[in-house]
Design a protein around this nucleic acid. Structure first.
Lengths: 334, 334
DNA sequence: CTGTTAGCGCGTTCAG
DNA sequence: CTGAACGCGCTAACAG
């Protein structure tokens, strides 16, 4: 892959200065005379010099790379719109930076300590963790590590910096939208209860119903997949045939729910109003467009990455967690 | 991130051998007595030693990492099932390896030379390129580079190693499935004509029709997106209201086509038979399940990665391109 | 089979 | 403002 890359020595020689001057000219240009600076820059351009990452890493004991830890994509939920959004977010934050992105796939059957060991081994300067499940052990393995930022609130937040959407408020918004449409028999299809996002969305839903004097008794787990959503909708309607409103905790599940309703001859929104969650692509693809709660995943990840970079750079500034507000995106299903 | 990582010196001291013996014990264990080997291994375990990547890279002039170049995910097609499949494929091939994966996002507005320069700078040992579009320039910038493998056939194959699906055969299979169902007025919705996959699928389609004594005159570009597919279907049916069969060059587009048919009151497969392409998730989500041509993306990427690793390792074996055969996955839409 | 000796390319004191 | 000298941690000859 390499093409006899020129070294700093050659640049210095060509510029007629010493190696250290050349080095300084490259890194900030402090304490370098304009003349030397110009000479070095010319030499760099002429020779096509690119600093050797390994050598620099060895000298500075900084790798110039961060890891993006993603769960193994067996799980349909995390895979689809999620991975894309995360990549966009990190990519955007890293654009223009020299920082390189190392992708780490967190295999489900691999002991969590292994990933933690990798991160601690200094192969990367920091890490963005997307690890939504309670039992994956990453949370505890990484607790206390500065230079690690989680996407999505962990179960125990002590010693962990994270960026998240306010899912409670999101659940509430979704429920209110259905209630405001005059529906009184409102149920919900949730994500798996080993994910904080799913728990929080249900929580917000329940609160909104309570505030309206209703009880949240029509609840089924759809596992954040389309098929799971479809099955959950059938179970829910079997038990509560009178439902006229439905909050579905993800748009992907809403696609399945939609099928279930069609099978039963129920019309949307005439017979049953639906509000989804995420707005990561699936909502816009439905006809009529699904009314949903926008999840600013890309912005979240971007913020997480910038937080991480700032920390790595300035060494300090004990990180605040960031929780972004959701908002409702109107569609035609309510 | 780092925890005062122990160095090879400390391992050697603890094991009572010299640094070089320790090094040899780690790398293959050749020319090392069983006693020393065991002592070194014990010391490593005891100290929790992890070799410093940068130092090793500097000494060997090999980084131990490969790049995965993906297009900027503005494009809905490439984003969804594609990125996921690619990540799965590369991840699978790299599992158990020490090779790390560097994600490079190929921004649409960035000059192709920049990416090529990065790769040539020796920051990585090799690269997997997913670059389907004709005009992105990556193809020409990387032509001739050993240690680069493309996913999907490039426009000009000279000097490029690639792994691809036999899309011509796939297009033919899809068309035959429709023809075998007795349909005679068969149209197709293609992908964008700046992608070889789209061109080849159309080619296969046209040949199958020709072999059946029919001409492929009902053709529209759906851009490999759901919305594009829907619009293309409407255009096609406006021009050819008598169509009774449709080959759609991607499942994602087929979702849109399905909507268009519904809007027009056409039943699937009674009025119009449909066959899709890809089987990357969308087909199974439709009801009835979409009959489609399976695209072994994960296997392709896995193969590409293994090919690359083999090359990097053994230095040689001029690479054969690999073209995998497609097969039809029956559903209920034909 | 082993230890000794050199670098790999760069950043960084520390004198000048 | 500059250059000489040292070290980052590891691999790779080379004698023994």
């Amino acid at each position: 892959m390499t093409h006899q890359a020129p070294t700093l020595d050659e640049v210095a020689r060509e510029a007629g200065v010493s190696r250290s001057t050349a080095s300084r000219a490259i890194n900030g240009g402090d304490r370098v005379s304009p003349a030397s600076q110009a000479a070095v820059e010319a030499a760099i351009a002429h020779l096509g010099f690119v600093p050797n990452r390994a050598a620099r890493a060895l000298a500075t004991s900084q790798t110039g790379s961060i890891a993006l830890v993603i769960p193994e994509p067996d799980d349909l939920f995390v895979s689809d719109p999620f991975l894309l959004g995360v990549v966009r977010g990190v990519g955007g934050a890293l654009a223009g930076t020299q920082t390189q992105l190392v992708l780490l796939i967190n295999h489900a059957d691999q002991p969590p300590g292994q990933m933690a060991r990798y991160l601690r081994a200094g192969h990367v300067d920091g890490a963005i963790i997307t690890s939504p499940h309670r039992d994956d052990g990453l949370e505890d393995a990484l607790r206390g590590s500065r230079s690690v930022v989680f996407i999505g609130r962990p179960f125990r937040t002590e010693g962990i910096t994270y960026v998240d959407l306010d899912n409670v408020e999101g659940g509430r918004l979704a429920a209110r939208a259905v209630l405001d449409a005059g529906r009184r028999r409102v149920g919900t299809i949730t994500g798996p209860m080993d994910m904080t996002a799913a728990i929080d969305r249900l929580d917000g839903f329940s609160r909104a119903l309570a505030e309206a004097g209703l009880t949240a008794d029509a609840v089924e787990d759809g596992g954040f997949t389309a098929a799971g959503g479809e099955a959950a909708a059938h179970r829910l309607l079997d038990r509560h045939p009178d439902l006229d409103g439905l909050v579905v905790a993800s748009d992907v599940m809403a696609v399945g729910v939609r099928h279930a309703l069609e099978d039963r001859g129920l019309r949307v929104p005439d017979d049953v109003a639906i509000v989804g969650f995420d707005n990561l692509g699936a909502a816009a693809a439905m006809t009529p467009r699904l009314t949903t709660v926008h999840n600013p995943l890309v912005e979240m990840v971007d913020a997480a990455t910038r937080t991480l970079l700032r920390r790595l750079d300035s060494g300090g500034t004990a990180g605040e967690n960031l929780v972004l507000p959701p908002h409702l995106v109107p569609g035609g299903t309510v």
